[in-house]
Nucleic acid binder design. Sequence first.
DNA 1: CTAACTGCAAACGTTTTGCCGGTGA
DNA 2: TCACCGGCAAAACGTTTGCAGTTAG
Lengths: 169, 169
Amino acid sequence: MDTRTDTHQPADAKPDPMRIERLCIERGLKMTGQRRLIARVLSEAVDHPDVEELYRRALALDSRVSIATVYRTVRLLEEKGILERHDFGGGRARYEATDHGHHYHLIDIETGKVIEFSDAQHEALAEAIAARLGFRLVGHRLELFGRRAAPEAATPPRRAPKRRSGEGA
Amino acid sequence: MDTRTDTHQPADAKPDPMRIERLCIERGLKMTGQRRLIARVLSEAVDHPDVEELYRRALALDSRVSIATVYRTVRLLEEKGILERHDFGGGRARYEATDHGHHYHLIDIETGKVIEFSDAQHEALAEAIAARLGFRLVGHRLELFGRRAAPEAATPPRRAPKRRSGEGA
DNA sequence: CTAACTGCAAACGTTTTGCCGGTGA
DNA sequence: TCACCGGCAAAACGTTTGCAGTTAG
């Protein structure tokens, strides 16, 4: 397929607000009110929210959720392969639905914003490297940390995150 | 330089047991007994120890260190650019000296062992992708998760780590 | 009916920090 | 000298869990 870098962020604004719920049912999960709520918040997210953010969004729709349930749900969905957990530095796990195929992340270190992209060339390279080292590739992650290139007025400086976790050198 | 994947693990068994200490002095850090001790442990490490492991190794040489000091030192050294923090999953940060140039990691998901490698082709690709997306690349990380390829008797199964952090999909 | 679920608060494991008496430069 | 440092114990942080009551299927 494509050999070029291909961005796809808020482009496809998650069209289906029930996708996650459907997946839950498929895997035989009991659909309670809070589960449905959290599923909806997740389905609608176009970013990579952490648990607190999910909790905040859920609360805004219905106050009968506890953060413990968000933690439990998010973990459960990850175990079921419905969610993917990421660590972009900053000490909290961030989640995203497992769909829109393999992609990588570019983190804007000024704003913390995450841009998704895919790149077939990289995909092939990763595979080749693993093979060269005598391994069968099971998974891989590529994260780029960058600063918006030159041209315009600089974004105001950003306070350092709460500190924790590994940044790429 | 090389365009091929190049492994370099315990190969170069850190020849200089004072490298870190020298760097500390260069950056104007006060060299106390415990600082020197920790620096030495770090200089001698050929792996990616976490804080507890560093503490254990330091204690074995001299019992007058506290784990708080290890935490403080490791953080300080990271801020000074002497150490690099990694999160390979498992809930604790792991450290390695910032030297032997840019390299990436392949994590053997059976054993948890980390193999380092460098790859100029990937390096160039990362740079190109960032540019293509309108960013200046500040750092990047590539982590491969793999299973030793076919041939020999399989390594015994390994219990899952303490749970936390992001695995590559 | 009952296994799966929830809220709450307490527990967890890692990491940071306040206090305050030391110590290297 | 004195700004920086180390030990200790307590706090903070994100996250998990035991308990007891609730609910989906």
